[in-house]
Simulated scan of single mutants.
Amino acid sequence: MTWNRSLLREVLSVEEANVVSKIPISLSRSPDQLIWRLTKNGLFTVKSAYHLLGEMKNLYKKRIKESALCPICTRDSESTTHALWSCPSAQDAWGLSSRKLQKERVVESPFSSIVGHMFSVLDENDMSTFASIVHQLWKRRNQYVFEGKYDAPETVVSTATKLVLNYKEANRIQVSRDKPVAPSVRSWSAPPLHAFKANWDASVDKVQCKVGIGVVIRDWNGCVVATLRSQRDLLPDPLLA
Rank of each mutant, 00 (worst) to 15 (best):
L8T: 12
E10L: 13
S13I: 00
E16Y: 02
A17N: 09
N18E: 12
V19L: 10
V19Y: 01
V20A: 08
K22E: 07
S26F: 02
W36S: 02
H51N: 11
L53Q: 03
L59T: 02
R63E: 11
I64T: 14
P71C: 09
I72N: 04
S77P: 02
E78G: 02
L84M: 10
S86Q: 02
C87A: 03
S89I: 04
S89P: 00
A90K: 00
Q91K: 14
Q91C: 10
L96V: 11
K100L: 09
K100N: 13
R105D: 12
S113Y: 08
I114R: 05
F119H: 12
S128Y: 03
V134S: 11
V134I: 09
L137I: 08
R140C: 14
V145Q: 08
V157E: 04
T159W: 02
A160S: 15
K179Y: 05
K179W: 09
V181M: 08
A182R: 05
A182F: 07
S184N: 10
W188N: 07
W188G: 03
S189F: 05
A195N: 11
K197Q: 12
N199K: 15
S203W: 03
V204Y: 09
D205S: 12
K206P: 02
V211C: 08
G212C: 08
G222R: 09
V224G: 06
V225I: 14
T227D: 01
L228K: 13
